[in-house]
Nucleic acid binder design. Structure first.
Lengths: 100, 100
DNA sequence: CCAGATGTAGCGCATCGCGCGACAGAGGAC
DNA sequence: GTCCTCTGTCGCGCGATGCGCTACATCTGG
């Protein structure tokens, strides 16, 4: 995403991008290599740099983290009682905060 | 959200909910008090417990973290050059991953 | 040959989520 | 009055993690 599409379009090398983002060169490498997560601070910096909204980068990271969490806690989650919530209250909570 | 709507409906006290979530009682208190963030692991547990999808809890947390990050790095972000990305590429990247 | 970019690895620091022990307060049962 | 439970908060220690820094090896163009 970042390396293959955004950076070439901006005519920026990894080193240059890191300088403009005001972060260490290695930090950007770690993010590109998936060795470190995209933190809210990083997402804000990326959004400022290329105009792509920060929640886009964060949603990518979130889906990744959530996937790992669900598989790591699979056995633990099975032992958590699944209570049923009335649909009226459920949809009320969900719709009251914007997300579909 | 959790304390005022979900827990009363499930007839669960904080202590009981913590037990069912297989976490320490104080941990749940910290989340309810906003002293600790809703991690992907916690979101997965909550989703299992009450049926509300995990990305709902995570999006709430994310908006909060992002707000803090943007205000904490406000002066730093101002010094990051804002490059313009062609709308064709921009919308292409955004639409290719589901988020609007 | 050499300067600059790249990718990776290790170290140290600060932060943070978490479990645990401990505390004080409120409310119900006997 | 006494006990018990739940509650809310505090501090401590542990492990994980993001980050900057130094250092290394590699590749490429002048």
């Amino acid at each position: 995403m970042l390396r293959n599409r955004v950076l070439p379009e901006l005519r920026l090398t990894v080193t240059q991008a890191a300088q403009e983002l005001a972060i260490a060169r290695q930090t950007l490498h770690r993010v590109l290599a998936g060795k470190a997560a995209v933190t809210p601070e990083m997402a804000a910096r990326l959004a400022r740099l290329c105009g792509i909204p920060s929640h886009f980068w964060l949603d990518l990271q979130l889906a990744h983290d959530l996937w790992h969490a669900q598989h790591a806690l699979a056995d633990t989650l099975d032992r958590i009682p699944a209570h049923a919530l009335p649909d009226t209250l459920k949809t009320d909570i969900l719709t009251r905060h914007g997300r579909t």
